[in-house]
Amino acid sequence: MSATALATPPAPASVPLTKKVLVADHPTWCPGCGDFAVLASFYRVLEKLQYPHEKIVTFAGIGCSSRFPYFVNTHGGHFIHGRSLPFAAGISLGGDDLHVFVFGGDGDGFSIGGNHLVHTARKNVNLTYVIMDNSVYGLTKKQTSPTSPIGFKSKTDPWGAFDQPINPMRTLLNSGATFVARSHATQVNHMTEMMLRAARHDGFSVVEILSECVEFYEGAFDSSIPRKGGKWTLIEEKKNDGTPEDANRHDVTDEVAAFQLSQQAWPGSFGVFYENKTRLTKNALEADLIKKTREKTKHATDLQVLQNTFARLR
């Protein structure tokens, strides 16, 4: 912290952001739904970050998971199905000092919103996106989702789904997201850490969280839950400590290595797949465009700019 900052400390937030301040409506999810744990972790993330309360925005699309913002006492809301990312891009670009969090399901994000995901990622809009993947359409009661595995029996595929599911990590990496991580709703500490790192990332950060729908796809993620006999494999990140073990650790800045991780057999690994700290955000690029343009106009007032334009149209 600089000396001047020490001399004039920022006014302390009137109320520290505790879970008590952050809880809003009582969650309406089914008992046992994985989404409760995601919510609990998110409170912890906000408690750790201590952003000014009014600068936090929690938004979502439509789905069970997208009910999330009603349960968090911050500015926020609930947009239409699949379009929360372009909406949130407007929030992020319109209020550069805001901390924008977007929540949604696998259908919301990878199906109806799939194209928006690609484009928000490639533009590197500064916001954090949490996909609560239950591999099913929960709210609409058990239809096949874009992440439902082959063989999953849903109301739209009673004989077992046969369309190839998408690979979320590969899709996210391919889109150009600059922070890509994967977590699990049964691992609260891990989830919290992933969301925290995502929030601190400058750019489009996304965390995919496997979050079980106990109502329509029970046991979907047992294969990665140790107490149910599954395997929990954490990504070991490179420490650059010169040790021989380090050579085998994952370099989060290595895109090719990230793609290789995404190709692992189900249930795969959990942790940070990719992190790019060098690519500029759209927020920064647009701000730079404004700055340079304003320099060219010699910081003319809005009225002067418009008057000059009209003078050229005489």
Binding site: F79, P86, G90, L98, H116, I290, T293
Partner: peptide, 29 residues
């Protein structure tokens, strides 16, 4: 024109994204 006024206009991936982004701007005032 908008950067001259300190503003910005976003070219989106489609019309749905465009109106969504615009409403997002309005949401920030």
């Amino acid at each position: 024109e908008l950067p001259k006024y300190g503003g910005l206009f976003v070219q989106c991936e489609d019309e749905i994204a465009a109106i969504s982004t615009a409403i997002g701007f309005s949401y920030t005032g």
